[in-house]
Nucleic acid binder design. Structure first.
Lengths: 121, 121
DNA sequence: CTCGTCCTCAACCAAAGGGTTGACAATGCG
DNA sequence: CGCATTGTCAACCCTTTGGTTGAGGACGAG
């Protein structure tokens, strides 16, 4: 299994079924059975999906009688947002610069992380 | 291969090597050979990685003599950001609400999900 | 205690993914 | 032209993954 957290998160969200589950979990916690309802797959398959989400830190499960309510965690979204935002901004910036210079200057010219940067590649 | 764009993007970014490539491409375009340099894998493997990124719409390739410079595209990042932001906010909102409830009553008394599944629209 | 409910564990299978090696297309240069 | 450089295509190998079925654990209700 992927070692680093970010890989696990991205991999978890690479599946449409799991993304749908996440979408529904933003509305309310749900049991595995409730989660399974809309899909045409076995309960066990759904259980596996939930586990993947759990391993990625996207959800947590508690115990409540025989039920195992699944709860969406917000933190990981922040993590992803930070990651994404960084590259999104960089890509846009580069796009602008390239447009400006159009291949006359090499990367001497590349500035350190621009405004509000602060992480290392 | 995953049909929907979002799945492709997430899947593409689920690999650390590919994320690293993306990181480096925010600094400058690069050829496949240049991209391959840091890694201890075959050129063909790198070529495959680039293709995955391309299929996901994260990069484009042009022709320039025998070289095929790889260029990072910013648009897809916007797409992802929008998707993410939506769920991040929803999750936070829900978190706050739950926090509120938890704050006012003992844990084993938590009124869980609306009974009788209010499954999804 | 027994039963039904809810869920997980285990074994298995087909397909996809990341890696390899080997052949070869495309282009510039001597 | 012949050849080196750059990159892709193709076939193959494992491992992972999403799915299945079957067995069974945990718990509440009777």
């Amino acid at each position: 299994m992927a070692a680093d957290p970010l890989s696990r998160v991205f991999a978890a969200l690479a599946d449409p079924t799991r993304r749908d589950m996440v979408a529904r979990l933003t509305l309310a916690d749900a049991t595995v059975n409730e989660l399974a309802a809309p899909y045409d797959i076995s309960l066990q398959a759904v259980s596996k999906h939930v586990r993947v989400l759990e391993d990625a830190g996207l959800v947590t499960r508690s115990r409540e009688a025989q039920r195992r309510p699944v709860h969406l965690e917000a933190e990981v979204f922040d993590l992803m947002t930070k990651w994404l935002e960084r590259y999104r901004r960089a890509a846009e910036e580069r796009y602008r610069r390239l447009d400006d210079v159009l291949g006359s200057m090499p990367e001497d010219d590349v500035p350190p992380t621009p405004p509000a940067g602060g992480a290392r590649p």
